[in-house]
């Protein structure tokens, strides 16, 4: 396997009881690539993303991240996860910690950085997402957009090799979406490998290197944004896009 492959999914299946959510997914993401996953709700795109860092254990198939097979029982999952950044739809900031502590805590507890070093890194990360003046604010004192940017900084603090975004802007008020997307776009331009589940077609069109359309647990179509969003070949892709773009 080429060393440039960061994420590799092979014949991935996932069922919740009798509900067969993923029905054989094969996907590779190479270093520096930004892949957007789009599709109707219930198509399995969030489950797919959550499988990449094993928040969901797949029913069958293999997941390989940075050459490490996460589905192997001998794999140290905590170590592997520390290299995979995850950003959630509902932010999931730690409400009992300030913004600075949110960004520092995993550096201290997982990477074992000392307090001073962790704080310095956290400050520069908060500055990078435009929140240098909010380091002492608690999540409840921040807007949704600010919370999500702290969450991105928190994930970046682990120096991840790949970032996963699970509908990162879906819970935001419309006027706050732009700030978060700008941070994500900047990350993409810096060469971060990103796997993004999104409903923001504009972001997919402008930022993605590749767009993957999923429906009913399978990848229906993938290719460049121009190809998939601009000129979809599959009928399911066409009907999904016309329902999202013409509302």
């Amino acid at each position: 396997m080429s060393s440039d492959v960061v994420v590799s999914l092979q014949n991935l299946h996932k069922s919740f009881g009798s509900n067969h959510v993923l029905r054989g997914i094969d996907l590779e993401v190479t270093r520096g690539e930004v892949v957007c996953i789009i599709g109707p709700s219930g198509s399995g795109k969030s489950t797919l993303l959550r499988c990449v860092n094993m928040l969901e254990t797949p029913s069958s198939g293999t997941i390989t991240v940075l050459g490490r097979e996460l589905t192997d029982i001998d794999c140290d999952i905590n170590e592997a996860r520390s290299k995979i950044g995850m950003v959630f739809q509902s932010f999931n900031l730690f409400p009992h910690m300030t913004a600075l502590e949110n960004v520092s805590v995993s550096q201290r507890k997982v990477l074992k950085r000392n307090a001073k070093e962790a704080q310095e890194i956290s400050r520069s990360l908060l500055a990078r997402v435009g929140l240098q003046d909010k380091e002492n604010s608690y999540p409840a004192q921040l807007s949704g957009g600010q919370q999500q940017r702290v969450a991105i900084a928190r994930a970046l603090a682990m120096n991840p090799d790949v970032m996963l975004f699970d509908e990162a802007t879906s819970a935001l008020d419309p006027e706050l979406v732009g700030d978060v997307l700008a941070v994500m776009q900047a990350l993409a331009q810096e060469g971060m490998t990103m796997l993004v589940v999104t409903h923001e077609m504009g972001f997919a069109k402008n930022v993605a290197d590749r767009v993957v359309f999923m429906d009913a647990g399978v990848i229906v179509e993938q290719g460049s944004p121009q190809q998939v969003i601009g000129a979809p070949r599959e009928e399911r892709t066409q009907s999904f896009l016309s329902s999202v773009l013409n509302h």
């Binding site: 905590n78 170590e79 996860r81 995993s106 997982v110 994930a155």
Partner: peptide, 30 residues
């Protein structure tokens, strides 16, 4: 304590025990 708290902690590479002691139990205590 919302399920997302454990997921966020585990996603950062914390072990279950570490996530419990630093993230979940302090919130549960309140």
């Amino acid at each position: 304590v919302p399920k997302g708290q454990m997921e966020a902690a585990r996603s950062l590479g914390m072990s279950y025990t570490r996530a419990m002691t630093t993230i979940i139990i302090p919130q549960a205590l309140r």
